[in-house]
Structures are given as C-alpha cells and as structure tokens.
Computed example of a mutant assay.
Amino acid sequence: MRIIISPAKKMNMDTDSFPFRNLPQFLPQAEHIYEHLKQMDYGALKALWNCNNSIARLNAERLSTLNLRQNLTPAILAYEGIQYRYMAPHIFTSSELEYIEAHLRILSGLYGLLRPFDGVIPYRLEMQAKLQIGDAKDLYSYWGSLLACRLLEETDCIVNLASKEYSVCISRHLTRNVRLLTCVFGERRNGRIVEKGTLCKMARGEMVRYLAERQSGRPEEIKAFDRLNYRFASEESSRDTYVFIREGEGLEHE
C-alpha cells in the first residue's frame, strides 16, 4: 500500500530537525525543468506562478541562488500547507517516520514523485502550470506515465489523498489490476455531499497521521478513521471510494 498526497505552495528550509536521506528519484528531470525556469524572464515567471509581486520576487530569487543538490530539506518538512500542519511530522515518533518513509509519496510538479526524506529546496511550480518544455505542452505531458510506473513498481494498491490536479497524473496511467482508493471528506448539504477545501486538507493530514500512528498496512483499516468529527459512511462508499461524513456539534448548516 502506498499513500499519495499533494505538495503545498508555501515552503521553507529546515536543515536542522533531521537530515535528508536521498536525492529525489527523478532529479535529472527536475534539473531540466529548473534550468528551463531559470531562463525565463521575471514577467513570464510571474504569469506562470500566478502570484503577487512579493511571492514572485521571492521565488525568482530562489531560482537564481538555490541549487537542487545543496542545502536540502527533507520533503516532509519542506511543505507548510494546511495538510502538513495537521499531519505534524515534526512530532512523529521514530516508528511513525519510518512508516511514512515506506508508505507515503508526495506528488510534485518539479520533482515528480518524492519520498518523505528526499532532499528538496523551496520552489513554486504547480502540476497544472502551463509550462511547455521541449515537445511537452505541459507538466502532465512532461511527466507522462513515469510517475505512475515508478509507483506501480512499489505497490498495486494506492490510497489517494491528493487533489485531482495531482492525482490525475497517476490515475490516468493505471492498469486494471491496480486498486486506486480515493478518500472523500464531505458534509451533507441539501441531500448532497459537499467537500470544502480547507476541511479536506485538514482531514487528509489527519488521515496520514492516523495511519502512521497505527502503522496501517491494509486499506480496510482506513474505515475506522474518526477525527475532526468525520465518520466512515458505508452507504455512500464503494470499493474504490471511501466517503467520510463530517457530523456533530459546532457545524455550520445552510
């Protein structure tokens, strides 16, 4: 079983908490993308990143000063988004860290597929960015089936905790004998199940922590997840989609 998650836009450098173990598996491909970005002018980069001037200046400076092989941060500590805050890898036990190193994979526009202890630098590049590199019209074309093929060398059961923007680079290349189990975190609203972005990110982080604490190796164990007021909804779920409904006191109602 492998768990896939999305990266986060906000990143930091942390070379002190614990060291990285490996260079990313697709470092040559990442370096090719990175060199392409370094050749772009500021206006083109700002448009690609779709951000304000402050963020654009920060990331342009990173492009000009950082090296993909030096001053690296373990990937699991480099991302600062909501999902990672709720995962809270800084306080994982040794056994929990070993669990995520074995089971967790982070999808990335720049690096492709990361293990938690792969060394990375701060960057800004979403998978859906309109970046043409050579014959590849975008990053989905650039990575093609490479990421899915590498993941399938490790497992035939993938637990999907990634956003669609990222999970599609795996799902569109899977064979029929591979199980892709997607977790949905929603609320009941007017007879429908509605997902809310921030709550989903929180739940995905909590789910990774939950699985690490229990050292889970079977996808069926996911059904017992009960954090943030979520409960498994068997009537809404199927073999390849586990739906968790958020219920209880303190919820907003329409």
Results as ranks from 00 to 15, higher is better:
224 A>S: 14
242 Y>P: 13
230 Y>F: 11
231 R>K: 13
15 T>L: 09
164 K>R: 11
155 T>R: 07
231 R>I: 09
44 A>N: 14
76 I>A: 11
159 V>K: 00
152 L>C: 11
222 I>E: 09
222 I>M: 13
180 L>N: 15
130 K>S: 15
208 V>R: 02
179 R>W: 14
43 G>C: 01
91 I>Q: 12
232 F>P: 02
136 A>M: 15
92 F>S: 02
128 Q>I: 07
27 L>V: 11
35 E>L: 14
65 T>E: 07
148 A>W: 11
69 R>M: 09
85 R>H: 14
223 K>Q: 08
183 C>P: 12
253 H>Q: 10
231 R>N: 10
61 E>S: 13
31 E>K: 15
17 S>E: 10
229 N>I: 00
85 R>V: 12
81 G>N: 08
77 L>H: 06
93 T>Q: 07
52 N>G: 15
153 E>A: 10
191 G>P: 06
49 W>M: 06
138 D>H: 03
151 L>H: 05
108 S>R: 05
64 S>D: 07
249 E>Y: 03
48 L>A: 11
33 I>M: 03
199 L>S: 14
131 L>V: 06
40 M>D: 11
203 A>R: 01
93 T>L: 12
143 W>M: 07
233 A>R: 12
171 S>D: 15
85 R>S: 15
53 N>R: 15
117 F>H: 10
43 G>I: 01
2 R>S: 05
238 S>Y: 09
20 F>M: 14
46 K>D: 02
199 L>V: 13
96 E>C: 12
214 R>C: 02
29 Q>P: 04
125 L>R: 05
122 P>H: 13
167 S>M: 06
6 S>F: 00
164 K>D: 06
156 D>W: 03
246 R>G: 08
5 I>F: 00
64 S>G: 05
38 K>T: 10
19 P>Q: 09
27 L>P: 14
100 I>C: 03
90 H>W: 12
107 L>T: 02
166 Y>G: 01
209 R>G: 11
